[in-house]
Amino acid sequence: MVACQQHDETHPIKEQIETPKVQNTAVDLTLMCQNIEKNMAEINDQRTTFALEQINQDLKVCLPLLKLEQQKALLKLSLEMYDDFLQVTRTPAQQIAFERYAFDMAQHPTIHQSHFEQLTPRDQYLLKHQGQAYVEVVDTGNEKLTYRRSPDYLARIFAPYMPEAEKVFIENLAHQNIEPALQNQSLQIEPFEVARRALFWESYIHQYPQSSYLNDAKILLAQYRYFLFIGSPKSLVSEDYHDQYSVRASSWEEIEKLAQSDDSELSKLAKKFIHFYHMSDEERRQNMHAKKSENAEQQLIDYLNLIRPHSHKNCLTDAICL
């Protein structure tokens, strides 16, 4: 009986002890989420990767509690936060030392470089801690190196807590932009991958017409269509647009495969592309009402109704269009 009595008496006491703890946790959580914007705004070029990681952990807790508009406001703040964190002021000599050191490390990561001490203290810190808190060093072309926040950041920190349309957009664009698609005006991906991405964005637009990223998906679709049928300034699909044999073999092969399928808008464009190369110059002018002065590239762009890549929006570096 004593044992039973003790059990009955201690149980309510245990509940009384635990209840304030739960309330305090709820209060702490509310306070943390209320302060997150302020804490993000306080991140600057003097802070550590540990401070970033702490905010990223807080974001994972707070994001599931927010509506999409609030999530996207924090997403915008996260861009500014990383921009501030990765700011480095260098002299011209320090700039040369940074690029030399970072490029050498990319080529020979095990070799200790003697000019490390010539770097700014901030560069020394960031280079030592690259890979932490989604901080990377990337080659932007012509051996110019810079810091960036990995595209994986938004895919891991934000996407899991967003509606499906936004989640799918961010996760897929992050994956596509881990490595550059375009560098020094030259395509870094094969026609097969260009076609795969164009088909993905075409499908995304049909599947998620209510997505808040719908317009950006349309920009991406237009961009990859252009890459597939025209190329880039230093990776042209054709040099003179004369006939099939003036088209890069890998591009022709991929476009021919697309033309044989019937389930996409891209397939229809592929059929038109092949038809264009089977026409004579005179047939092109007659069928497209083209002027004699119009070059063949412009004729093809008009015939396929392609849009030249946007210059005001960059969709090829992060998990969203910037």
Rank of each mutant, 00 (worst) to 15 (best):
L77W: 03
Q87N: 13
V88I: 14
L68G: 00
T48K: 15
K76S: 14
Q94T: 05
E53M: 11
F85R: 06
M81N: 08
I55R: 06
L65I: 01
I43H: 13
L63T: 00
Q46Y: 06
Q95W: 01
E53G: 06
R47I: 06
Q71F: 02
K72S: 10
A51H: 15
K38S: 09
L65V: 03
Q94F: 07
Q70K: 15
P64H: 02
Q94G: 03
Q57R: 06
K38I: 08
T91Y: 03
K38H: 08
L68E: 04
Y82T: 04
L74I: 14
N39Q: 10
A93F: 00
F85W: 01
E69K: 13
D58G: 01
V88H: 15
I55G: 01
M81S: 14
T91P: 00
L77S: 13
Q87C: 06
Q94R: 07
I55M: 14
A93S: 09
D84T: 05
L86M: 09
K67C: 04
L63Q: 02
L66C: 03
N44A: 13
L75G: 02
L74P: 05
R47P: 02
Y82L: 05
Q87M: 10
R90G: 15
L52A: 09
L79W: 00
L79V: 07
T89N: 12
L86T: 09
F85K: 03
N56D: 11
P64T: 07
A73W: 00
N56M: 15
I43R: 13
T48C: 14
R47N: 12
T48Y: 14
I55H: 09
P92A: 09
A73D: 04
D45P: 04
T48L: 15
K76Y: 03
Y82F: 13
L75K: 10
Q54D: 13
F50I: 09
K38E: 09
Q94D: 08
L77C: 07
R90F: 03
T48H: 13
L75F: 11
K76D: 14
E69N: 14
D45V: 01
R90Y: 05
A73E: 10
L68I: 06
V88P: 11
L77G: 12
T89Y: 10
Y82G: 02
N39S: 13
V88M: 11
N44I: 05
M40P: 07
